[in-house]
Design a protein around this nucleic acid. Sequence first.
DNA 1: GCGAATTCGGTTACTATATAACGCGGGTGC
DNA 2: GCACCCGCGTTATATAGTAACCGAATTCGC
Lengths: 176, 176
Amino acid sequence: MAAGQGRATEMTHALAAAEARCLRSGAQLTELRRQVLALVLEADQPLGAYALLDRLKAQRPGAAPPTVYRALDFLLEQGLIHKVERLNAFIGCVEAGHDHGHDHGHGHGHAHDHQFLICGSCGATIELSDHAVAHALADAARRVGFQLRKTTVEAEGLCAACLAAGAGATVAASPG
Amino acid sequence: MAAGQGRATEMTHALAAAEARCLRSGAQLTELRRQVLALVLEADQPLGAYALLDRLKAQRPGAAPPTVYRALDFLLEQGLIHKVERLNAFIGCVEAGHDHGHDHGHGHGHAHDHQFLICGSCGATIELSDHAVAHALADAARRVGFQLRKTTVEAEGLCAACLAAGAGATVAASPG
DNA sequence: GCGAATTCGGTTACTATATAACGCGGGTGC
DNA sequence: GCACCCGCGTTATATAGTAACCGAATTCGC
């Protein structure tokens, strides 16, 4: 891609931004939480809690499910990561590193509306922040008197790269 | 309840419609599948697979997880039920009883686009079929060259009834 | 009628995902 | 020092989902 920086650099930036954000909000980005965040960020796909646990054990042999789940809960609350419900997996928030220039005032991450596009062929997961989708959903909810708190919009299909590679015909199946 | 019919009547209609649909498509709505469908339909909330299994055991003592999962897979394929990803639970499809007047030609249920609004207070789950939401998502996907196959749109919040009951302040918590 | 192929579902065993509950140690305030 | 909260280790368990094998019933071809 056209990005002029490697993944390692992005990671460093993202971690620094996360740290800065936690400092501002008073949240404690502990060593464990930073480790789990790093594991999520360095993956190019959403990772399940137990996949993260396996990797975490390299650094922290005694790690158990609650170890990683507690860290994930924290990171979710801070808006540093998202959960992909369809996959029961976790992925870094692409907006976590940005600063919106204002404080939303709820003491935690801004919990922006977002959408995921999950490629069924290569597993890549694209995060969107499409206002039209968010508005359409908000409108539909308002129409039935429903007050939204958190939205989950996830779609499965084929990413541009896999479509170009002809995955439209094979969809991750080996050619016959 | 302003509806002029009881839930039992709705259920009977839904089951009859499901049977008719399966007849047309050649799918076999067996006794087990009908039982599981009835359990899903008679619940006023989405039910997890194991909750369904517990209830199924009353009629079918030997039932085990695969028993209910196989039935659920069938019902999902036929479009007679939906899965609520956020809850890992299953709910009857409100359109399953309708007839769209045309055959979609893929040999199974029409898999219409839909959205769920899940009340965090009472657990009620409202199914929408909002075209604006579906279109917005389709547009956003097209813009990044992503081909949609299946969409999952689920929102958590407060339903109109719970809002009216003042749940906006308490959200299912007992008053202090 | 007989066997092959298919479908449905019972059964066992297992993997994957997630949480409850208890306890310890380190900070902070007094 | 002591109470308190928080982070986290630890054990155990709950919940969700699948793999693999088997037998009964049906259908198809002969």
